[in-house]
């Protein structure tokens, strides 16, 4: 099988930085690493399995009502994810609040079903879905890493910046509260896109 089906969505055709899909529910969960990781895993699972199911059903779905059918598939998977999170990771599910439900309207999922799963066999569709989810998760985790490290001085809740550096303990360091605010997520994403496009000159659009 062609390897590009896995590597393409993660780097060259990353769903977030190149195709601009699925930023909607992504940026708000990147204040801390833990919810970002949970979100990344949830989205990867939903993207993979919804592509798989849609691909299995691709010859039976009437073309006119396919959007509704796809929405139902995705909504069912998201309900499963939501119930699992509520049962096993209640704190994180509280932090993610409405953004778990918003996985349904995440454009990556519908985009992959429309663009790939409806025209391909189940196994490649599953892999394509998982790879796209992973590409999305990668960006999410990278943003959360920067925001949590600079904004709160912690990673996964563990203190990384030494306590003795802080002004409260007579040091010189202060957390940059700006990075916890919503707008910084956008600006960091903008910088990622900038970086990626300066390394991949052929991606630059007029």
């Amino acid at each position: 099988m062609d390897k590009s089906i896995i590597t393409n969505p993660i780097l060259k055709n990353n769903p977030v930085t190149v195709l601009v899909l699925g930023i909607c529910s992504a940026l708000a969960v990147t204040v801390k690493l833990e919810p970002a990781c949970v979100m990344a895993i949830s989205v990867t699972a939903v993207t993979g399995f919804s592509s798989l199911i849609a691909s299995l059903l691709r010859n039976t779905i009437p073309n006119r009502i396919r959007i509704i059918v796809q929405l139902v598939i995705v909504a069912l998977l998201v309900i499963l994810v939501d119930q699992i999170l509520k049962a096993f990771a209640y704190d994180v599910s509280k932090q993610l609040s409405v953004y778990v439900g918003l996985i349904i309207t995440n454009c990556i999922i519908m985009g992959r079903i429309e663009a790939f799963a409806l025209g391909n066999k189940p196994l490649p569709s599953l892999i394509d879905g998982l790879a796209n989810g992973a590409g999305y998760g990668l960006i999410l985790i990278a943003i959360a890493f920067i925001r949590e490290l600079i904004g709160s001085g912690t990673l996964f809740g563990f203190q990384i910046i030494p306590e003795s550096w802080y002004m409260a303990n007579g040091g010189w360091y202060l957390n940059n509260g700006m990075f916890i605010m919503p707008p910084m997520a956008l600006i960091i994403t903008g910088c990622f896109i900038w970086l990626q496009r300066s390394f991949q000159k052929d991606e630059v659009k007029k």
Binding site: P182, L186, G190, C191, I193, S198
Partner: peptide
């Protein structure tokens, strides 16, 4: 605008700046 930042990149940064204003 610098070429790699054109289009999407600069739009994100603008939205971020507008967000700061709305804060």
């Amino acid at each position: 605008v610098p070429a790699p930042l054109k289009g999407l990149g600069i739009t994100f940064i603008i939205v971020g700046l507008m967000g700061i204003a709305f804060m």
